[in-house]
Write a protein that binds this DNA or RNA. Sequence first.
RNA 1: GGAGAAAUACCCAAGUCUGGUUGAAGGGAUCGGUCUUGAAAACCGAGAGGUCGGCGACGGCGCGGGGGUUCGAAUCCCUCUUUCUCCGCCA
Length: 429
Amino acid sequence: MIDIKLIRENRDLVKENIKKKFQDKKLPLVDEVYEMDVDYREAKAKADNLKAEKNRLSDQIGALMREGKKDEAMKIKEDVAKMADEINSLTTKEEELSKAIKEKMMVIPNIIADDVPIGEDDTHNVEEQRFGEPVVPDYEIPYHSDIMARFNGLDKDAAARVSGNGFYYLVGDVARLHSAVLAYARDFMIDKGFTYCIPPYMIRSAAVDGVMSFEEKSNMMYKIEGEDLYLIGTSEHSMIAKFKDQIIKENELPITMTSYSPCFRKEVGAHGIEERGVYRIHQFEKQEMVVLCKPEDSEAWYDKMWNYSVELFRTLDIPVRKLVCCSGDLADLKYRSCDIEAWSPRQQKYFEVCSCSNLTDAQARRLAIRYKKENGDKEFVHTLNNTVIAPPRMLIALLENNYQKDGSVKIPKVLQPYMGGKEILTPLK
RNA sequence: GGAGAAAUACCCAAGUCUGGUUGAAGGGAUCGGUCUUGAAAACCGAGAGGUCGGCGACGGCGCGGGGGUUCGAAUCCCUCUUUCUCCGCCA
């Protein structure tokens, strides 16, 4: 959500930004908001003046009553009562306009960074840098669920009987590897100075509505029957809602957190659930990083954060690349964003494992997350988030890149302590 | 789940029975000063309080959230949420 002052003062900039994002159908919104804002302020001024008059007369009534002049008081009472209709209609108009403006403002995208590549969709995202050699072995890499199956590590049939499509049982060493990756990622971020946090996995509708659009909500969120509670789709939901309407002390910034949670997603819409394997499922686990900082620091944090992802994957011997999101592929709240993609030797291409974003003040403005400066002024913070690691999807990269010709899988050194010292997983069949 | 009590500004807290000179007493903290080698303590003083509109003067709204009664609500009514105490149940 952008500052409405931008629309009052620089509509061209806002429109230009919309064009850059290939959302021309949203262009009329800018003038609509501009005009509604003028009407809103006019209605508010009128209503406020009438209310001021009413308050003044009410005080008079109080004074007269105290003096015992009931007749005069009654007369004024009638006058005030006559004002009620006009005040009501103006107040209603003011509220309706305010609500309508807010709805439109929610849809107007955040101003994007100057250096975001311009492009209509994800095919125009730009590879910026590679880290590690994307190795193509001279033997065939099986599909990840087949690799898991060789260790008796995955049972989707049972999951389908028990929970339906889109669920899995992870078993034995594969399950342990899953936990090891999460524990490693947690400790990696703690070592970077982030604070570990376990948030609520269910949040009430007021919190849900605060952190996502209606469309997202209906496509993603599972609702608990008979309760005002939803299962979170990512810990970012509870982590950001934590700060809604809060004023943070300047010396508490930056707030750097790494949160863990299971994530529950209906995955209604474009993609659907993948039949084979664990790439897209209804339930997964994720370690996330979330940063709230002063506006002047957010760009530096953005660079630090995506670099953490690269570093983490490199310690796991997984080649990655940084893919910069182009204007059309940027979600509306984002100022800039990049994906860290891991190398898949089986598919011989990179696939997304982390998504790092700087939302500047767009999210903070929407949720009223501010900080108080030394001089007492309040300003919106900047918010950023990035995936640390999201197994089981991440296991795909891990298994494929460490798969040996004989069907075994090497365990990267950094994970071995979390695997009871095991250096290699040997197939059971 | 049952019974009771409570929610006031950064913090503590008065006011709520008896609606109107309380848009919020009084503290603490904050800031300035006196004193002191410096600090603390003590004393003196000050402004401010959240939010929206307005260039401003100023005005609207704000006493947990939402609604209602009234000319007028922190104060009365309804509702939701949260906290505390006791009982019950339970990882």
